[in-house]
Design a protein around this nucleic acid. Structure first.
Length: 305
DNA sequence: TTCCAGGGGTAGA
DNA sequence: TCTACCCATGGA
């Protein structure tokens, strides 16, 4: 029996999947024809009963074929009927986190109505950002976005998954993102050989800290954790600076910071500074008026409006 | 060949 | 707090 999980409306699976480039990073796959998101994940890590599971997620429709705010999750590589309630709940939690199904963006939508460049967000159900199943996976992937072209991020992520990810039992070419213990058991030199460059010790150190219980990334997901404290903990990770911390804060539901990268500077330059080079200060100034929503305002800004 | 990408750490001021 | 310099790698 496939899992069915409701979302806070409005919800559109395609909008979440296309919210950024994350879906291009393995183990994510997106079937555009069937509008189906696939990934490979692991459950049972906490009770040392680790199992690799493939997930296929699609949005449900009503009898007239119209999408409804609910997803259907089919598990692969595991007999669904044999899944215990704890395992089903863990899968439910992971998918809810990945797609932000429990996020209520009504306050953002009320705010966006006054801005022409955000006029589309509510009608298109934009505002959710695709997450990986675990914050560890997203933190490593974020480190792999720094100071490299997007093609480099894809290459490095693929190398990590292929070399260190656990395979799906009945489809061994499909692998989960490597868990902290798997990366922790790898030397920095071996990580360099995967093409991670100088990022190798950052990824290796983070994995060893998490595996040893010295760094609790899950604790960052506490909804009542103040932004300042979440930011402080993220910046304490070697390899995470202002840009990467802002990106991860967005995934954690804190939108006060802006992930300012070369693309942000380019867009702000072209839009408000006649193509003259701009720095961090100009990007911040451009979105200051959006207060606690400035991250989402920037992320879903319609630059052609 | 040179430059730079969805930056960050560190030393020195 | 701010700046200069270095960091691996691959594509343009």
């Amino acid at each position: 029996m496939a899992l069915r999980i409701p979302a806070v409306p409005p919800f559109d699976l395609t909008a979440v999947v296309k919210s950024h480039g994350w879906v291009q990073l393995p183990p994510f796959e997106w079937d555009d024809d069937n509008r189906e998101l696939r990934t490979v994940t692991e459950i049972g890590a906490d009770d040392e009963d680790r199992r690799v599971v493939g997930l296929r997620v699609e949005q449900l429709t009503d009898s007239d074929g119209r999408p409804v705010p609910k997803v259907r999750v089919v598990c692969e590589g595991i007999d669904e009927d044999m899944l215990g309630e704890a395992a089903r709940e863990e899968i439910r939690e992971q998918v809810t986190w990945m797609l932000g199904l429990d996020q209520d963006l009504a306050p953002f939508y009320r705010f966006a109505r006054g801005e022409p460049a955000l006029a589309h967000v509510e009608a298109q159900a934009q505002g959710r950002i695709l997450h990986s199943p675990t914050l560890f996976e997203d933190t490593v992937k974020t480190i792999l976005t720094t100071n490299t072209a997007w093609s480099g991020t894809i290459r490095m992520t693929r190398a990590l998954v292929e070399a260190l990810g656990d395979p799906l039992p009945d489809a061994p070419t499909r692998r989960a993102f490597p868990h902290p213990e798997a990366i922790a058991a790898t030397t920095d030199a071996e990580l360099r050989e995967l093409g991670l460059g100088y990022r190798a010790p950052y990824v290796g150190t983070l994995a060893r800290e998490v595996a040893a219980g010295k760094r609790d990334l899950k604790a960052l997901k506490q909804s009542d954790l103040p932004t300042d404290e979440a930011r402080r903990r993220l910046l304490d990770i070697k390899g995470i600076g202002a840009y990467a911390a802002a990106s991860l804060l967005m995934l954690l539901g804190h939108y006060e910071d802006l992930p300012i990268d070369s693309w942000a500077r380019k867009m702000v330059s072209e839009r408000w500074h006649a193509g003259e080079p701009v720095g961090e200060a100009e990007v911040k100034a451009a979105f200051r008026q959006f207060g606690r929503w400035k991250g989402l305002a920037y992320w879903f800004w319609d630059w052609s409006a």
